[in-house]
């Protein structure tokens, strides 16, 4: 008798598609995953779609339209487990920069007919709208963490995604500290782990694409960054990128608003 496999759905909101692409980037694991779960709804990969309910929903993207604000409620109702994948779904993404500006001005800059454009004034995380069972960080997420998260779900356990800072990952990798070693500004001390200290491994300062770690000391880091020559404007911009609307980064960027 055929085994009943858990049903997986992948949903897209405002995003670049990169995090759902991470699933297709698991070249070595994809067919195995497809054997363990029934891929019931994944428009980017297949035109076959099975009606809900779903056991596991992976949600990419942020909420930026009234239609999407209603749609996420439906997705939640259809999903036993809902996991957000990436910075857009978890913190609002780069498009949350509108939250600090006037979206009507933004529309007028990009579109000849801003009246054709229907959009909300803000870009918000999925957890601002519905209960989220687990959040996977990163812009984009790591394929390793994605496979771990799906495996953990199948085994009925909590995913192992360490909450410490990127600094710890640098120590594990044996990297020279880019701030201490060559005075390069780095968000590693306040940024959630998961990338494996990628930027410092390439002689670059971390730019915070995994968002804030738990209880980050951003005011202290800002003092160090200003000693390295960053002015108020640069400090505001450095926190205001792909996780601009995550609480800790938003509050710190606002402290440096002119």
């Amino acid at each position: 008798m055929a085994r009943i496999r858990p049903r997986l759905a992948v949903w897209k909101f405002a995003s670049c598609d990169g995090c759902q692409l991470s699933l297709l980037d698991c070249e070595d694991e994809l067919l195995e995953i497809a054997g363990e779960v029934e891929i019931a709804h994944f428009l980017e990969a297949t035109s076959a779609s099975v009606e809900g309910p779903y056991d596991l929903s992976l949600v990419e993207g942020s909420v930026t339209t009234a239609h999407d604000a209603a749609r996420i409620q439906e997705v939640r109702k259809q999903s036993r487990f809902l996991i957000t994948i990436g910075a857009c779904a978890t913190a609002g993404g780069i498009q949350a920069l509108r939250n600090f500006a006037d979206v009507r001005e933004y529309a007028a800059i990009v579109y000849a007919r801003p009246d054709y454009i229907q959009t909300l004034a803000t870009s918000t995380a999925i957890s601002d709208h519905v209960k989220v069972d687990f959040e996977l960080r990163g812009c984009p997420i790591s394929t390793r963490q994605l496979v771990e998260t799906i495996s953990a779900f199948l085994a009925g356990r909590k995913p192992q995604t360490p909450p410490h800072s990127v600094c710890v990952e640098c120590k594990i990798a044996g990297n020279l500290c880019v701030m201490v070693g060559h005075g390069t500004p780095c968000l590693g001390p306040v940024t959630h782990a998961g990338c494996g200290a990628l930027c410092p491994s390439y002689n670059r300062g971390c730019y915070g694409c995994y968002g804030p770690m738990e209880t980050p000391n951003t005011p202290s880091l800002s003092v160090w960054l200003s000693k390295l020559g960053m002015d108020e404007d640069a400090l505001r911009r450095v926190y205001r990128t792909f996780n601009a609307n995550a609480d800790a980064f938003r509050e710190e960027s606002e402290r440096h608003d002119r």
Binding site: F13, A14, T64, T65, D68, G93, I94, Q95, L97, R98, A101, V103, E105, Y106, A107, I109, V110, Y111, I117, T119, S123
Partner: peptide, 12 residues
């Protein structure tokens, strides 16, 4: 109908 994200605006 992908919602607009306004890159050209926030690049300023």
């Amino acid at each position: 109908f992908e919602p607009p994200r306004f890159f050209e605006a926030f690049l300023r």
